[in-house]
């Protein structure tokens, strides 16, 4: 559905994105994740036919963006980082205008506008002037204008920014419902935010793609190995030395890189084990055979935020973004 090859964009002499390559299939919900100024908006604006890349190829439904932008715009819904609202219009007039502009036939017009109002829970404010709406409602009207013509490709730049927690949950549900029918691209700099709605994440750091995959596969990528990872376990023994005993027993299991004691109590100890692939059963046997009790053994889920931080190296200063 969307193929992107070596996408690069310079603003003047400044490189905003650099050699991005990715593919997005029909019906996928893909989240672009990156810190401020990473290049999310730039990428989405290129895909939304708003700016031309400096180099690289974008194909949407097999059509080259540089040649067929007009055609692509017909099947595109776009919510920029500030919703493009005409303040003096009422919500329904505005949605009608957008639908007609996108080429919805007069036969379908009422139904499509009605659907968009219902989907975004805007029925109560349908007759209100846009200038009187609160920020969250404006954001919802922005979303409604992007889906009113039932586009096959939906691009949402920070759709949840500035919403209250209840609205964030609503927006999240809404985006999930839209997937399948529409291909949805959205961006955020908050990982937990975006990982819940997206089937797949593309992590961008200073204009480069640093990770591409599901939340799980990205966390594995961050660990540097496909199957391995860190195990967490809790053992029970009689003496003071039980922790050390467990550590040595586990250390002898083939495939275990390092085992260390994290905390010690009177009869219990917590350990962390790094291994090259999945060795849970061997580790369990080693603990039991050394005469200790095994209370807990599980893969340690690395916190998402720390994965993100590992990927994007926030130690480098970021330029302020507009």
């Amino acid at each position: 559905m969307i193929e992107v090859e070596d996408l690069t964009k310079y603003y003047g002499g400044k490189r905003a994105i650099h050699d991005l390559c990715f593919r997005i299939e029909k019906g996928e919900i893909v989240g672009f994740l990156g810190l401020n100024g990473a290049g999310k908006t730039t990428t989405l604006r290129i895909l939304g036919c708003l700016i031309l890349p400096s180099s690289g190829v974008v194909r949407i439904d097999g059509m080259d963006l540089a040649d067929s932008a007009h055609e692509i715009r017909k099947r595109l819904g776009f919510l920029p980082d500030t919703p493009p609202l005409y303040d003096e219009m009422s919500v329904q007039d505005y949605l009608r205008f957008v639908a007609e502009l996108k080429g919805v036939s007069s036969k379908n017009l009422r139904r499509y506008v009605g659907d968009a109002l219902a989907t975004c829970n805007l029925n109560e404010v349908a007759a209100d002037n846009i200038s009187t709406l609160s920020h969250g409602y404006r954001q919802r009207v922005g979303l409604a204008q992007s889906i009113v013509h039932k586009p096959s490709l939906l691009i949402l730049d920070e759709p949840t920014s500035g919403l209250d927690p209840v609205q964030i949950v609503e927006m999240r549900e809404l985006i999930k419902r839209l997937g399948g029918e529409h291909t949805v691209l959205l961006s955020s700099h908050i990982l937990t935010e975006i990982s819940q709605t997206s089937d797949r994440l593309l992590v961008i750091d200073r204009g480069k793609l640093v990770a591409d995959g599901t939340e799980e596969s990205i966390s594995q990528q961050a660990h540097g190995s496909a199957q391995g990872g860190v195990l967490e376990l809790e053992v029970e023994g009689d003496g003071d030395s039980s922790a050390e005993q467990a550590r040595q027993a586990i250390g002898r299991v083939p495939g275990v890189i390092v085992a260390r004691v994290v905390s010690k109590q009177a009869r219990r100890a917590r350990l962390e084990v790094e291994c090259s692939d999945d060795r849970r059963s061997q580790v369990a046997r080693a603990v039991v055979e050394s005469g200790l009790g095994l209370l807990l053994l599980q893969r340690k889920a690395l916190e998402l935020e720390s994965i993100f931080q590992r990927l994007v190296h926030p130690s480098h200063p970021q330029p302020p973004s507009t």
Binding site: C49, R73, L76, P84, V98, L101, K102
Partner: peptide, 14 residues
């Protein structure tokens, strides 16, 4: 100024 031009520019309008 208000960014509404993005709506026109991302629509099939010449």
């Amino acid at each position: 100024q208000t960014g509404t031009i993005n709506l026109l520019f991302s629509s099939p309008v010449r």
